[in-house]
Computed example of a mutant assay.
Amino acid sequence: MHTKSEDKVKKSQELLNQLKNKIEQKLPAENILDYKVTWNKEKGIDPNSEEHRKYLVKLCDDFVSKMCSMIHTAVQAKKRADGPLIEEIVQHIQFSQDKCRQFHGRDDVFKQIKRYVQGMSNEPMVLYGPSGCGKTSIMAMAAKQCAEWTNNKAAVVFR
C-alpha cells in the first residue's frame, strides 16, 4: 500500500521525466548540460554544503557562458544578414538629412504637398522637374515634415 507521500513523489518523478523528455526534444543536445549532485532530502540544494556550493557556482558559470555565446552567435548572424541592408538604409537617411540641411524656400510646393498628405486622395503624388531643380531636396524635406503634418500617423518610405 502506497502512502500519499509516496504517491506525490512518484507523480513528481513522472512529471520531471516528462519535462526532461520535452526539453530533449526541443533543445539541441549542445544546449543541454548534465550535472550530478547529491540531493539533500531536508534542504534540497543547500548552499552551505561544499558540494552544493561548487555545483551552484558551476551551474551559474556555465549558464552565463552559454548565454553569452548564444547571444554573440545571434548578434553575429544578425549582422551578417542585415549588414548590406542596414548600410543602405543608413546611407539613405544620411543623404536625406544632408538634403534637408541644404533646403530653403519652395513654400508653394510644400503647401501643395501638405494638402496632398493631409487629404484623402488615392492617387499617387508625382513630383517632376528638370535635373538639378531640387526634387530630391523637396522630397527629403516633405518626408521629414510628414509626421508633423499627420500627427505621427504617416508611415514614410523614402528611397
Rank of each mutant, 00 (worst) to 15 (best):
T3C: 08
T3P: 03
S5L: 09
S5Q: 14
D7G: 01
V9M: 08
V9R: 15
K11E: 15
S12F: 09
E14W: 04
L16H: 07
L16P: 00
N17V: 01
Q18R: 11
N21R: 12
N21S: 14
Q25W: 01
K26E: 10
L27H: 06
A29W: 00
E30I: 11
I32R: 09
L33G: 00
K36H: 11
V37E: 04
V37P: 01
V37F: 01
V37C: 09
W39K: 05
K41D: 14
K43N: 11
I45E: 03
P47V: 09
N48H: 08
S49W: 01
E50M: 06
E51G: 01
K54Y: 02
V57C: 00
K58P: 00
L59H: 06
C60H: 12
D61G: 00
F63G: 04
V64A: 07
H72Q: 13
V75L: 13
Q76E: 15
Q76S: 10
A77R: 15
A77Y: 01
R80L: 14
D82R: 08
D82N: 13
P84Y: 07
I86W: 01
I86V: 15
E87T: 13
I89H: 09
H92S: 08
I93C: 06
I93M: 11
Q94T: 05
F95D: 11
F95S: 15
S96L: 05
Q97I: 01
R101N: 15
R101T: 12
F103P: 02
G105M: 06
D107Q: 15
D108N: 12
F110C: 05
K111D: 11
I113T: 02
R115K: 15
R115A: 10
Y116P: 02
Y116G: 02
Y116K: 03
N122K: 15
N122H: 13
P124N: 08
M125H: 06
M125N: 02
Y128L: 07
G129M: 07
G129Y: 10
S131H: 04
S131D: 08
K135F: 07
T136L: 03
S137N: 03
M141V: 11
Q145A: 13
Q145W: 00
C146S: 15
E148N: 14
E148F: 04
T150M: 07
N151F: 03
N151A: 09
N151R: 12
K153N: 13
K153G: 04
K153S: 13
A155T: 13
V156C: 10
V157K: 05
F158H: 07
